[in-house]
């Protein structure tokens, strides 16, 4: 095109070599940009799933929210499938910086979903197990139970341990938010469960300490703050609850909860 015409020696070997480099760099950069965009989509949809999941503290039908979030997360997995497609035959780490924010956010969302459902920490293995994609079929919904048909090549995506850790570190922030909302909504169990779970994660991170990558150490401070907020919330619940017999509490909150349900029903 135009640019090439301007150079002095059109046919010099140097210029020829640089034309090759131009192609190579542009190809790589385009792939990188596509991955950044995919990652951004994954981030946004994961964040939306998290937003959605926070509704569990204020509605009566938790299962419905979980199901809705699961559908949303299915969509996110489809997009991760597109990332896997882009990475086919590539060195995953070459483009890692492009998609790591999205993957971390996905880990955060899927582990939040898992905690609400099972009150345990999802394992890295479980996360990766869900990231199996059929070749040439990534545009269709990949339902989990589905058997891989022999004719289809299987494509996998492996979340790295570091991305897993960073996602879990961010999860603690969401758990803190959920805990504080629960207190407000009179859920007497969740705060205590969250606080125990968060302590375990906190202890896990202090076990790893500074042996992990720098980004992990950087998140430790926020994690500690979240834990402290959750512990304070439980403390408040306990101290305030101490003034009245337990059975009365239940009364109080069931009336509150129904009031809230009415409001939410209209929304």
């Amino acid at each position: 095109n135009q640019k090439v015409n301007l150079t002095v020696n059109l046919s010099s070997p140097v210029i020829d070599a640089f034309k090759v480099f131009q192609l190579e760099l542009d190809t790589k950069h385009d792939k990188y940009e596509r991955l950044v965009k995919l990652s951004r989509d994954v981030t946004i949809d994961s964040k939306r799933s998290i937003f959605l999941l926070h509704r569990v503290t204020s509605v009566s039908d938790v299962e419905e929210v979980l199901a809705e979030a699961d559908v949303k997360l299915g969509g996110v997995r489809q997009k991760i499938g597109l990332i896997a497609e882009e990475l086919r035959g590539e060195d995953l780490y070459q483009f890692h910086r492009a998609f790591t924010p999205g993957i971390q956010e996905y880990v955060e969302a899927v582990s939040f979903h898992h905690f609400i459902k099972h009150r345990t920490l999802i394992s890295l293995e479980d996360i990766n197990a869900k990231l199996l994609f059929m070749k040439d079929s990534y545009s269709k919904e990949s339902t989990e139970g589905q058997q891989p048909v022999a004719a289809h090549q299987v494509l996998t995506f492996q979340v790295t341990p570091t991305d897993y850790l960073l996602g879990v570190a961010d999860l603690t922030g969401e758990l803190m938010r959920m805990c504080i909302s629960s207190v407000g909504n009179g859920d007497m169990d969740t705060p205590f469960q969250v606080s125990m779970f968060l302590r375990q994660i906190h202890d896990g991170f202090s076990y790893i300490g500074n042996t992990g990558p720098y980004e992990v150490s950087k998140k430790l401070h926020t994690l500690r703050q979240s834990l402290s907020k959750v512990e304070d919330a439980c403390y408040t619940l306990k101290v305030r609850g101490s003034e009245i017999p337990k059975h009365m509490l239940a009364d109080v909150f069931s009336s509150r909860a129904s009031m809230i349900d009415q409001d939410e029903g209209v929304a």
């Binding site: 205590f192 125990m196 302590r199 906190h202 202890d203 202090s206 076990y207 300490g209 042996t211 512990e231």
Partner: peptide, 18 residues
């Protein structure tokens, strides 16, 4: 040393659990 210190920490921090 840091590894061992972290192990002791994990151990002692469990007193915060109910």
């Amino acid at each position: 040393l840091e590894q061992t210190a972290r192990e002791i920490l994990t151990l002692l921090q469990s007193v915060h659990q109910p």
